[in-house]
Design a protein around this nucleic acid. Structure first.
Lengths: 194, 194
DNA sequence: TCTTAATTCCAGTATTTCCTGAAACTGCGA
DNA sequence: TCGCAGTTTCAGGAAATACTGGAATTAAGA
């Protein structure tokens, strides 16, 4: 590994983190390197800097592409593929959450719904199914919230986050002071028409 | 594995999910079983139902205890330890998020801050450090929001989630219509005095 | 169409992580 | 203090995952 100390430390830490979150270490390191690099890098640049085998880098890049986490670019008079991450970190966060949801949460939710709907055959099963149904409801609530806020532009999202729980106070005030038609609790189901 | 079909399918699915999120399959399955069981279970109950070795179950339970995800109980005239998960799913979610944050996000954040503060020695490093600092800022914003909303009681939290992005509309209205002292953007840093 | 540089695939190997059985430990009741 | 039921620890084996080098493939330029 042939990198300035700070970059190396970042890359190594990111690799460790990745491996705790179900992303393999190599892929995490490749991503980290692209993330902090000012210029797009090609596969050989990565091999040189990280010291992985050429094919390992190639597979890692493929996986990152499958996750929509990197962008491919081409330089004039150069056939090689160059890769970067988006400049906007919020876009990266959105992609990460979106992909993770699509691959893991959504399938889980449909499994849970299916399990909860089966005809139970023992009392134990009946109890289990009500626990499962509760779980599905919580996941639906959280993902519904997410589906909603992900449409906000970054600035609004950031200010909402900065506001934190104070939002609650504003809402209580609103409940007390004003009548706002069309702002009730019953949010649209949002699963069907996107 | 000796379980009603629905419970078995849930346990297996949960085990798979766990292994994608950095929890090993066995531990995930033990947790899933406890989660759907109406009664507390002891280690031998788990061995019987899941077919793991006694020691594997013991280690799994130990790990779940370290994560604060299970409760130990004792029955009268029985020395064995019995385990359950909390009845309230929201409590489970809070614990999960809290532990994960404590073990992974917080340490990462301090690493990032340290890296961003080092004196850079190359232009590449300078650029990397500004990316790292930006990342730290995003993480701080999100965890700050989380630290804030986690204090809400479950009912308020659920209604906030149900409201989704509509919150934004309420806030815009508030900006236009009223002056609310002490509700500005500048939230307390919240890291120091808890 | 041929040459060549670049990329991808794949089979085998290495490494890491997980799981087991046996042995050590703990603490209660006699 | 001893015996015993229950629990935990740990070293070694098993399984899963990751990594490599070479061979196959692709595509651009001549």
């Amino acid at each position: 590994m042939n990198l300035p100390a700070t970059i190396q430390d970042f890359v190594l830490h990111f690799g460790e983190m990745g491996s705790r979150w179900g992303i393999n270490r190599t892929v995490g390191q490749i991503y980290a390197l692209l993330f902090v690099s000012a210029e797009p890098l090609n596969a050989d640049d990565i091999v040189e800097r990280l010291g992985f085998s050429r094919s390992n880098v190639s597979m890692g890049l493929k996986e990152l592409q499958a996750w929509n986490l990197v962008r491919m670019k081409h330089l004039p008079d150069d056939r090689r593929d160059y890769f970067t991450t988006p400049d906007d970190i919020w876009e990266i966060v959105r992609t990460l959450v979106e992909e993770r949801k699509k691959r893991e949460i959504d399938p889980t939710l449909s499994v849970l719904r299916e399990l909860a709907m089966r005809a139970p055959s023992t009392p134990a099963e009946t109890h289990a199914q009500s626990r499962i149904a509760e779980t599905a409801a919580v996941i639906e609530l959280v993902t519904g919230w997410y589906d909603d806020v992900k449409r906000l532009d970054t600035e609004r999202l950031a200010s909402l986050l900065a506001l934190g729980a104070k939002v609650q106070k504003v809402l209580e005030m609103k409940d007390r002071l004003t009548i706002l038609p069309g702002l009730g609790r019953s949010r649209a189901k949002s699963t069907s028409t996107e």
